[in-house]
Structures are given as C-alpha cells and as structure tokens.
Amino acid sequence: MQHDHDQGLAHDISRLHEQAFERRVALRWLLGAGAMSLTGAGAMTLAGCGGGGSSETTSTSSDSSSGSSGSSSGGSTGGSTTTTTCSVIPSETEGPYPGDGSNSANGSVANVLALSGIVRSDIRSSIGGASGIATGVPLQVIIELVNTNASCADLSGYAIYLWHCDALGRYSMYSSGVTGENYLRGVQATASDGTASFQTIYPGCYSGRVPHIHFEVYRSTTTATNWNNKLRTSQLCFPSDTNSAVYATSGYGNSAANNNAISLSTDGIFSDGYSTQMATMTGSAAAGYVARLKVGISV
C-alpha cells in the first residue's frame, strides 16, 4: 500500500480545514456585498442554503438555517413531487478515498466505477474478484434527487455514486487491511420518483470526522464511470443520538470514543451548516436504520 490510513486522514483533515476557511471568506464577501446594495433596484437578496459551500442558489429556497440539526429541507420521506421548496446541496470535498478515478492507491489509478457490477443496490460485498463483506448495523440509504430550477421536481434517470468507511473507519481500496477490497461503494440510477436506494451498513467514526457518507451525482449510469463526468459532490451526516446508539453495539472499534471527541459544530465539513445534509432517520440499532435525504441540484 502506498499510503496508510493515518497519512490519508491527515491529508483529509487539512483539505477540510482549507475548504471551511474558503467558505467563510466567500460568505463574508457576499454578506458585505449584500449590505452595500440593500437599497435601490439593484438590491441583492441572500438566501441561505443551510449547508454552505454551494456555488449555486435557487429562488425556491426558503431554508435559511446554517446550523440546524433537526427538521430541514434535507430530510424527506422520498417520492414526493408536491414540495416546491428545496435548496441546492453544498459541494463538499470527495476526500482522499473516492475510488472514482481521480487519484491512485497502491500505485495505480483507483476507479471502482470502471468495474463490472458497480451498479448495484446492496453495496456490502466486494466485487470484481474481491470477496470481502462489510458487517455492521444494517442501514438503507434513500436519496431523492430533485431539480431546484423546476419547483423541486424529481429527477429520474440520473445516477448516484455512494461510498463510505466500514465499521472500523477503514475505506476499501485505500486503508491498511482492506486495500484489496472495494465494498461499501456502489452506483444506483434514480427511479421515476427521483430516488436511489442503497443497502449498506452504518459507517464507523474515525478520528477527526463525524460519521458521514460521501456521494457524487451523475447524469446517468453510463456517465458514472469517471469523476470527470460528475455534476455534484457532497456528504450526508446523521443525528448524534443515532450515532451514539449504533456505537454502543459491538463491532465498531473506537467509534464511540472518536464520536464523543467531535461534534457537527467542530467538524471540518459540517461546522458551517448542515441542515440540507442531515439525514432523516427511522429504525433502531437492533433492527437497522433507514436514512433519507432530499438532494437538490440545479439543472
């Protein structure tokens, strides 16, 4: 392996801090510009997207919170076409472990998107000749993709590439002990109701980050073969009570201690706002969870 997990994590945290700083600078500039033009026909209206970091805004957005962890436009029961209020989800770093062809692992380009079988709903097992299976509290992730430029209409036929760490905080393809695996990575097309569903496990919590899931949005499964084609990259997070319940179960290593040492307000990605990125949860640690998130993009 070329880079171990500790080296990759340090790099990840550094990139996260840089991105958070850039967002704060951009926000201060925007607020200053808005204050100078509040009168006259050229007055500028600022609408918060709830997560920060987005280069796009939408006239349908009414979510102005930047730190709410409760109900938000980010949560959804899925399949609804009656909602006319939504926000463009913030762009976030893909981190050092994307497996989308944008970097290398073990001396070669790491691109799980090129493997046969990557379009799948159940992402708990490895593919392409690898045989590992990730274990942990069952989790179904349902992402509803909507168009913020069309009254939040559901977007069908698009594709979501989703990936996250295992119960011990390791990323397949990159982390020591699982470099030969590619589990917890998969692509799904959005259905007629705009939803893409993944059967996976609840991710562990490694030092320096709150529990999270990465995802990229593509125009179709045929274009979801390389990072150059992606339309959006972001991350979703979970309520703190759900994290605590999961990490009280066995098999999650140091996740409980790591989770207790950080919060959404101190995380390098979510500290500037996460309301559009907070999953709505149902279920239990014993029976498994369902996480739902409405993801707005501008197309």
Rank of each mutant, 00 (worst) to 15 (best):
S108G: 03
D122E: 06
P98T: 08
T93N: 11
I89D: 07
I118P: 05
D100Q: 06
V88Y: 01
Y97K: 12
V119F: 03
I89W: 05
S102T: 15
E94R: 09
V119H: 06
G99C: 04
V109G: 04
V119S: 12
V119I: 13
S108N: 04
V109N: 15
G117W: 09
G99Q: 10
N103F: 10
V88G: 08
L115S: 14
V109L: 12
S108W: 01
T93Y: 02
N106F: 02
V112C: 00
I118Q: 11
T93M: 01
V119R: 04
S91Q: 12
I89P: 01
D100M: 03
S104G: 10
S104R: 13
G101L: 03
A110P: 12
S102A: 10
S121A: 08
P96M: 00
L113A: 01
E92M: 03
P90L: 00
I118W: 06
E94S: 09
R120I: 10
G107L: 04
V88M: 00
N111A: 02
A105T: 15
S121P: 05
I89H: 11
V88W: 01
S91Y: 09
V109T: 15
G95Y: 12
E94N: 09
S121T: 14
D100K: 05
P96V: 02
I89N: 09
S102H: 10
Y97L: 00
G101W: 07
T93H: 01
A105M: 07
V109F: 00
V109E: 13
G95P: 11
